[in-house]
Design a protein around this nucleic acid. Sequence first.
DNA 1: TAGGTGATCTTG
DNA 2: AAGATCACCTAT
Length: 195
Amino acid sequence: MSKIPPSFYQRDDVVQIARELIGTKLHTHLNGVATSGIITETEAYDGRTDRASHAYGGRRTKRTEVMYQSGGLAYVYLCYGIHEMFNIVTNREGLADAVLIRAVLPEMGIEDIRARRKRNLPDHQLCEGPGTVTKGLAIDRTLDGADLNGNSIWLEHGLCIPDKHIVVGPRVGIDYAGEDAKLPWRFKVNTDFLR
DNA sequence: TAGGTGATCTTG
DNA sequence: AAGATCACCTAT
């Protein structure tokens, strides 16, 4: 019931945070509609060392600026001209780490989520993939920079998922990152566990 | 498996 | 400054 505090996001270990975010609940309350889902898939991006990060090599642009802020903010950007991607900024100011939320299991407001998705799918497929998470929970670039300790979008502690139900592996869609593409920085709940 | 669609970055 | 690239989804 209580929001995850900024101190959780401000730690200096984005991979550990990505792991710990599995099983937590992502909430949005936008335009009078409340929806939420249990986070089931995440990826860590390390701004300092990771060629897959938008902030790699100290890249500071209008887009990446929020990543350099203190942890606990939303980083939302447009991918492939179509899909909004929702990330959680972590670490302290100046260190541009982030966790991409790739899937959630809808919990509150499932019919609102289904209406936004305009698809009749089983619950566990409604927000599977980063572009569908944002569509289902109505997250868009107007929330870029939003404080995750506020009342529009926030996280709460949820289920404790043991390691044996989590698949760890390489991140998706970052072949351009060379060796870094092999890093085991993706965390995903076993699909059987959800049914 | 290709097409959609737009911001970001560039000898990829 | 045009052109490639890009943390993807859906339908054929």
